[in-house]
Write a protein that binds this DNA or RNA. Sequence first.
DNA 1: AACGGCTTGTGAACGCATGCACAAAGTGAG
DNA 2: CTCACTTTGTGCATGCGTTCACAAGCCGTT
Lengths: 224, 224
Amino acid sequence: MSERRPGEIPEATVARLAVYLRVLTGLVDASTVTVSSEELAAIAGVNSAKLRKDLSYLGSIGTRGVGYDVTLLREKIASSLGLTQRRTCVLVGIGNLGHALAGYSGFSSRGFTFVGYFDADPGRMGEPIADSQISDISELESVVESNGVSIGVIATPAEAAQTVCDRLVDAGVTSILNFAPSVLSVPDNVDVRKVDLAAELQILSFHEHRKSRGLGDGLVESVG
Amino acid sequence: MSERRPGEIPEATVARLAVYLRVLTGLVDASTVTVSSEELAAIAGVNSAKLRKDLSYLGSIGTRGVGYDVTLLREKIASSLGLTQRRTCVLVGIGNLGHALAGYSGFSSRGFTFVGYFDADPGRMGEPIADSQISDISELESVVESNGVSIGVIATPAEAAQTVCDRLVDAGVTSILNFAPSVLSVPDNVDVRKVDLAAELQILSFHEHRKSRGLGDGLVESVG
DNA sequence: AACGGCTTGTGAACGCATGCACAAAGTGAG
DNA sequence: CTCACTTTGTGCATGCGTTCACAAGCCGTT
């Protein structure tokens, strides 16, 4: 029944668009002009029907009998994801992970500019990081406000995460990427995505456990 | 219709069990004895009905009218996730991210032991990392085999990821956590989980984009 | 200009996940 | 023992996501 309004792209599709975008960038670099849904799906590791349905949310981009124009498709996806404008971000919590994130080239190459790196330890203020330096957490609000920062990345210990989150939101940040192992509560208009490293390993552990128990197919378990 | 066999826990539930486990560990530390589904759900940031359904896959653990015994529940979840035995892991690719992962205390505190850190650059062999040192990639197979490693973590550049993955699988690894921005192909019996940092930001970018366009509720869009 | 061969875009069916709402089951007071 | 109260466990309905299968549409050839 629920007619999806134009521009309403399902969450699951959005996540895959980012993957397609990366694959397409690779194809552009390889000077590929055209690609079929079958080929693209194979590279991206998905079913071709799913890929076509995903792309159909962006409008009719392909040419029947031919495929998709690689450059055009890439631009369409980038524009749907709002990647035509650079987005400014701040990173809070410069521990091991924070350093790694600051040094990750994939962010800046994909249109994200970090305008501030913050840590609660005053002793670390001024310490060089990426091509900038660590600022004290007290400057968080002013940097966010003066740069119109829309995305905040939290890489603090769990205890500090909610406080930092509240300060980011109060300062005007409307999207948060959380690496701290804690559940954040935010107003409705703020989006949060969480990356939980330990949870990832635990999920794999579950599958290991399952494999080592249930060896075989139609197993003994069929007891009345 | 499809009667789910005992022990068959849905994927979405498994992911949440890891969250519940963390919350419960916090409650144990706070000497909490009993918790209701309502309370636990609030802390974990989920709906209480969903939480009860999740837990019901582990059997009947709670006491009606009372709630769940915190310690018992935690043990049940840990055992379902296969966390009663320590699991051995290797980490391949010691760049910025690799270093951060090696230094992340959350892994070892949750039952994961890293028995090898590998990098392709021979010049870095012997360099200290965590409480161990970097090994050359050529030793990968022998370490995996002699330690019965079941989980491999890949933090290499995208170009190297598939090759490393193949070597891990050949050596006997059956679960892979991939931080490289590339799609891995593996045999059916191997599980892969992917963490794509740039994709996470792009997904947030999409929501920012959406928010800045579609301000307001029942909007103008209703054109015939 | 008509036809055969491809490939897209999508209606429809299916399956998994979520959330409601309530019966089942335990506790404690009187 | 009985009753009122609490909280679990779950049947059912709903909605979202995936997959199939095919009509619609484009291209090159004859």
